[in-house]
């Protein structure tokens, strides 16, 4: 698996898209810091960007890489390499290179600004960890979609649809249901609804850590009341981990049964 990972990673490092992505984050970090001049405010803005953008990039890159490396995959399938190693290697190659772009792109400007001398370092690290989780989750979901769809256009369509659902539509539906059923106790329901969407979960996780009650919202408040801050953090991390593991498991199972 590590050999495949190595080749996928090199392949991606040579692609100009990785650098566009890196450049974008560098720019974002620099602009935020120099327009804001306030580290903790910059982190909140960054959170809002990361939570929407990282899943989108992970989804698109995952689907694109899978379809683009079809030839590479076919070549490898005839070699003495396990199927699960081929797909896991490629998946890890995509997720790791994307995570690296994210960490370097945001890390460098913040370190240059003097992150190590500020007490925002933990908030910032948490932000990056959540960003890495989201990258791993959404690339895995994208690989799942691509594995199930031979047709490129269909695969792309479903992947974008998934992102739209989780990043935009889900929140809207959730809010509408809260208003419609406001006469009923909705604590448990809203907790479950948050757990079932990795984007919502990440948002709650970061806001819990940042301890900004104004941004907490209904779910966040319920979350905090129900679990308390530290237990809430642990629970959300476990949920994020499950969100990575389940799609990865499906990649392994699905790839074993597929014809090429």
């Amino acid at each position: 698996m590590f050999k495949i990972l190595k080749y996928s990673f090199y392949d991606l490092m040579r692609s100009s898209w990785s650098y566009v992505y890196l450049g974008f984050y560098l720019l974002l970090g620099i602009v935020l810091l120099f327009l804001n001049n306030d580290l903790s405010k910059a982190i909140i803005t960054l959170m809002n960007v990361i939570i929407v953008l990282v899943p989108l990039i992970g989804t698109i890159f995952g689907v694109m890489y899978y379809y683009n490396s079809k030839e590479f995959t076919e070549l490898l399938l005839a070699q003495p390499v396990k199927r699960s190693s081929i797909f896991l290697g490629q998946y890890l190659g995509v997720s790791i290179s994307l995570s690296m772009s994210l960490v370097l792109g945001l890390g460098l400007p913040f370190v240059a600004y003097g992150l190590f001398r500020s007490n925002a370092i933990w908030d910032f690290s948490l932000l990056l960890i959540v960003g890495i989780f989201l990258t791993f989750i959404f690339s895995a979901l994208a690989f799942n979609i691509a594995l199930s769809n031979e047709n490129k256009i269909k695969g792309f369509g479903y992947a974008i649809l998934m992102w739209l659902l989780l990043a935009v539509v889900y929140d809207g539906l959730f809010l509408v249901s809260l208003i419609l059923f406001e006469d009923y106790p909705l604590d448990k329901l809203s907790l479950i609804a948050t757990m079932l969407n990795p984007i919502d979960l990440s948002r709650t996780l970061i806001i819990l850590k940042l301890d900004i009650s104004a941004l907490l919202g209904y779910t966040g408040a319920v979350f905090k009341q129900f679990f308390g801050t530290s237990f809430g953090l642990i629970i959300s991390f476990i949920m994020l981990l499950i969100w990575v593991l389940l799609p990865v498991l499906r990649i392994i199972i699905k790839s074993k049964r597929k014809d090429f």
């Binding site: 392949d11 040579r14 692609s15 490396s69 079809k70 030839e71 590479f72 076919e74 070549l75 005839a78 070699q79 003495p80 390499v81 396990k82 199927r83």
Partner: peptide, 20 residues
């Protein structure tokens, strides 16, 4: 999958990764 060490295979259409 190790049995594939014993097979040399020439695929019908040579699809190679194009940026290699």
């Amino acid at each position: 999958s190790d049995y594939r060490f014993k097979i040399d295979y020439l695929p019908q259409i040579a699809n190679f990764p194009s940026n290699l």
